[in-house]
Amino acid sequence: MSDDEPTIIGNKRVLGIVPSRPPVGERKDPRADDQVMVWPHLLVRHAVVAVAVLLVVLVLAVLFDAPLREIANPTVTPNPEKAPWYFAALQELLANFHPVVAGVLVPGGIVLGLLALPYIDRNPATAPSRRKVAVATFTFFLVAWIALTIVGFAFRGPSWSWVWPWQEWYGEL
């Protein structure tokens, strides 16, 4: 449209043409970056998730009792002495490396590394195929940590010796 020659359609002067875009609810092909109302669309999903989570907790709490051993006794160390599962990987490291490495440098390094991650990884891509180094590094640490957790949790018995979990169970929650 030129500025000097106004377009006339059906006796009306046309000021501009806007591409047709029906309201979100009526369009056939919803797109990822459409804006939708949080209430009710997101809220109802969050409510369902919340109920499901509470249901899981309820079932677990009804079926399994939290452990309570004998009263604390500073003169007897139980054997095996196992940490809760989320520290099992750390305990497994401690059984194999010097405490400065396994107890200070490794956990400290992991936390610092995670904190610094967004400032180290300046690659703007979000697709995994375009950030192979970051994904590979993270996956390596994640898999190693999960493996150590499983070993420390289920495969260690008295005096931190190797046991098969299907023969004797020493896992501690």
Binding site: P67, L68, R69, E70, I71, A72, N73, P74, V76, T77, P78, E81, K82, A83, P84, F87, L90, Q91, L94, P99, V100, G103, V104, E172
Partner: peptide, 20 residues
């Protein structure tokens, strides 16, 4: 304050002793 608690914290806090 059971055996599980006492020794897990003993071991866990002993790691702090190795901070340089």
């Amino acid at each position: 304050w059971d055996q599980l608690a006492y020794w897990a914290i003993t071991v866990g806090s002993s790691m702090a002793a190795f901070v340089p």
